[in-house]
Design a protein around this nucleic acid. Structure first.
Lengths: 198, 198
DNA sequence: CTTTAATAGACGACTGGTCATATATTTGAA
DNA sequence: TTCAAATATATGACCAGTCGTCTATTAAAG
């Protein structure tokens, strides 16, 4: 119905406005007041559009996946390039976004929330885990295709390698924020290339 | 003087009791009440021993370095082994502690605080940065020694490689907490070994 | 007039931090 | 050795403000 669409539209507007705060200040560092202020809505409205702050965070994660990961996954799936090239395009794209779009701040919303509350909040942990499992699965699929195409040596444990590279990327984001510098993510990309291109 | 020692001793006892909460629940997730409850002291006493919650966190980080990193750095400096072997001992020790002592929970206090509040709190960011810079410096020194001893190929950019491995370790801790599993840190160690032993 | 969408504001619990007061402990002079 | 003066430590009630949440009410739509 029209009302439902309108409802979803406004909920998405609140998510869009509030997501950045959650992203930069974290779950416990972000108050519902911060969100309603950013979205310029009355406080009472927040609970009309979301069950709770936790519900908001989970929907923000879903939105994050749609907005930030979908374009990256399209690069990964683009059949115009070889599998290995698509893998590298994916990694390069992420570094580019982090530098040009986010000025080496905020990092990854999913990683931030995971690191902050995964141990205390099972629902958020599951929401993040779902995203990371999906992305990792796609990456491994492409890497396997690269291996089958002879672009990656058959002796390589592709699943282990890609998981490792993905974790290295997450760690590089922590260092990036801590050092306020692009060098950790540049360095990560540099080593990943040397590993995959050797 | 005696009084100062007594003062420091009690402050350290409060730190010891409160550190675990800060470690597992994060900065914003931990209240001063949580700490005084864990340490079984009146609320007023907290502010006799610490200037603020931020001051407590910074001193907790220093204590974390003393308690958790010092033993690891001793392994790294142990002249009974070759440089490369010490490097591997260091990485193995950390995985062992994380599995046996921490049951694959909590991760690294410094990384947790860094990821949560580095962007919003300059003092905590500096405290964490100091720790990570120190540790990374020691690792690079040993890796350079390994290179000079011919244990690592002279073509390798040691600083870049060790920084990358360190970041990979941090990322693996995020995945470990998220997946509630040891496999990310096991996998990280496995790949690091294959990189250094090849 | 009924029903649903939207909102304002109050709710109790909790936040980090302060402070007056009370109790130990140490000090120096008698 | 004694005893007060001075200093260090201990304590929990209390502060103003904020937290996430909810309910009573209004606005709008059918």
């Amino acid at each position: 119905m029209a009302t439902t669409i309108k409802h979803e539209l406004k909920a998405d507007m609140i998510l869009a406005k509030g997501m950045d705060i959650l992203w930069s200040k974290g779950y416990n560092g972000t108050s519902v007041n911060d969100i309603v202020k950013a979205a310029d809505i009355p406080k009472g409205s927040f609970y009309f559009y979301f069950d709770s702050k936790e519900d908001f965070a989970i929907k923000a994660l879903q939105r994050y996946f749609e907005v930030m990961y979908k374009p990256a996954l399209e690069i990964l799936a683009d059949k115009g390039d070889t599998p290995k090239r698509r893998l590298l395009n994916f990694y390069e794209y992420r570094v580019k976004v982090m530098k040009e779009q986010l000025n080496c701040t905020m990092g990854c919303l999913a990683c931030n929330l995971s690191n902050e509350v995964a141990e205390a909040n099972e629902n958020i942990r599951n929401a993040v885990s779902k995203i990371h499992t999906t992305v990792l699965g796609r990456l491994i699929d492409v890497a396997k295709a690269a291996q089958e195409a002879g672009e990656i040596d058959s002796s390589v444990d592709v699943k282990a390698l890609i998981s490792f590279i993905e974790d290295a990327g997450k760690g590089a984001l922590i260092s990036m924020k801590e050092a306020k510098s692009a060098s950790p993510i540049d360095n990560s990309l540099y080593i990943v290339k040397s590993m995959l291109l050797k």
